[in-house]
Design a protein around this nucleic acid. Structure first.
Length: 474
DNA sequence: ATGTAC
């Protein structure tokens, strides 16, 4: 049982108790709170609140669910001097994220036959599924060094994308401080053939149409038109980042950093320690790998559109690419003073508001786009960040699971999921049927309720609702 | 999420 106290619209306080350094904060509506199984996730919120150097609140977004150590949908900002960095606070899929591109054609203008050709072309161009690589290039050690130094620009310099794409990527597609010397050979081996592949689980490439506009002025500034075509890409750092997370956890546990913690999965190192810096350098390398991965995937999407529909590269404009599994050094207002902190966002999106100096000119005028994928059948959302200081300018990252993978698989066993999806107007092509069963829409909460909660709480405003039609999965 | 038990 938890003593949640409503303190603001869609905002609940989890009071400080025991060894908690700060209270917990849950962003959700009363309806979501009632329907969620909060027992395990809130235990994790409280555990995170005990970590050294945590500031403000241990925060849970409305799409929160149980994760490794930290909850997925969790935000924790640490003091750079006294705080810690925790691999579990970033997640196994380092810099998992989402990018959204707009296409200058009404979706309705694409014939049924052309849609099928497009889906087939997307599936052929983008490797998907567990372990699948077969990407165009095998990364050399020299390539890895350039990925660390250049980020997404490496992929663009290789011919995968347009120069303008970089300005439409969070942190310009480059996390500083990446060092391949901090990355194991195993990690490099695992990632060598995986650039430009989506992977498995909830990763996808999706094409659909803009369904509803809530903020027409912002939508217009972002080239989002009602009825027009969008592309949504969700992937991360594949086996490369996974191995870096595993290597770091192994090292930290071996060094005894888990001692005294309520949960050894919260294992962490002081930000300023050699071990902390080592992880941050490797994490940045994985983050840059993930930016490159999504950049190459976008290139493959452009190739598929050209091949299937004759649509040229420049007609596909990247709106934004957001990270939702990362720790970042940012300046935030704390007790009225601007202070540098390390913000862990695990299953949470940065949501800078208008005027933020780190944003490129277009988004400095509007606030940054916040991309919130729902499930593969119902909807996804585009929001605009409001730079809410209480959440360290963070927002939700998705719908959040309502039932586990195994529950979903069981519920759909023996039924015809593809027929069901088709009845909802969505064509799905995947490497494995198991993935489809695990990812069916009813495995997720209704994303509409989740985005209403973050809007009510003042983290971001809804800009547009998207309706999926073609989905490639792992 | 993941060479889903290196």
């Amino acid at each position: 049982m938890f003593n949640l106290k409503k303190i603001n619209p869609a905002t609940f306080l989890l009071p400080k108790e025991g060894k908690m350094q700060v209270p917990g904060l849950v962003i959700a509506t009363e309806g979501l709170i009632r329907d969620m199984d909060l027992e395990e996730p809130l235990k994790q919120v409280k555990n995170v609140a005990e970590l050294p150097g945590i500031l403000g609140y241990s925060i849970a977004m409305p799409d929160i669910h149980w994760g490794y150590g930290f909850p997925i949908g969790g935000v924790a900002a640490m003091d750079v001097r006294s705080g810690v960095i925790s691999p579990g606070g970033v997640g196994y899929d380092i810099n998992c994220g989402v990018r959204l591109a707009t296409v200058d054609i009404p979706f309705q203008s694409i014939s049924q036959g052309a849609r099928q050709r497009l889906l087939d072309a997307l599936f052929r161009h983008i490797p998907s599924g567990m372990g699948k690589g077969q990407s165009r290039q095998t990364l050399s050690d020299g390539d890895y060094k350039r990925i660390a130094k250049e980020g997404a620009l490496f992929a663009i310099n290789q011919g995968y994308g347009l120069e303008e794409d970089v300005m439409h990527t969070e942190s310009r597609g480059l996390i500083q401080g990446a060092d391949m010397a901090a990355v194991s050979e195993t990690a490099k081996e695992r990632g060598r053939g995986q650039l430009g592949s989506i992977g498995s689980g909830n990763h996808f490439v999706e094409v659909g149409s803009v369904d509803t506009l809530y903020l027409p002025d912002v939508a217009e500034a972002w080239n989002i038109k009602k009825g027009s075509t969008y592309i949504l890409i969700h992937s991360g750092s594949r086996g490369f980042g996974h191995q870096i997370c595993q290597d770091t956890l192994d090292l930290y546990i071996k060094k005894g950093f888990a001692q005294g913690l309520k949960d050894r999965q919260l294992v962490a190192a002081p930000i300023e320690s050699a071990e902390g810096k080592h992880y941050l350098a490797a994490m940045a390398a994985a983050a840059n790998f993930a930016f490159c991965n999504r950049q190459v995937i976008l290139h493959e999407v452009r190739e598929a559109f050209l091949e299937a529909l004759g649509i040229e590269q420049h007609q596909i404009k990247l709106l934004y690419d957001v990270c939702h599994n990362i720790a970042k050094f940012e300046k935030h207002l704390i007790d009225g003073k601007l202070k540098e902190v390390c913000v862990h966002r695990k299953g949470a999106t940065r949501a800078f508001g208008k005027g933020h100096p780190e944003l490129p000119p277009l988004f400095r005028q509007t606030g940054q786009p916040v991309l919130v994928p729902g499930d593969m059948g119902r909807a996804s959302h585009i929001l605009v960040g409001k730079g809410n200081p209480t959440t360290f300018c963070s927002c939700c990252h998705g719908a959040g699971r309502a039932r586990s993978r195994i529950q979903s698989e069981k519920a759909w066993k023996g039924k015809d999921p593809l027929q069901y999806m088709s009845s909802k107007g969505v064509s799905v092509k995947a490497s494995s049927m198991k993935t489809i069963l695990e990812e069916m829409p009813d495995a997720y909460k209704n994303v509409d309720e989740v985005v209403l909660a973050v809007q009510e709480a003042g983290l971001a405003d809804m800009v547009a609702k998207l309706k999926p039609a073609l989905v490639v999965k792992g």
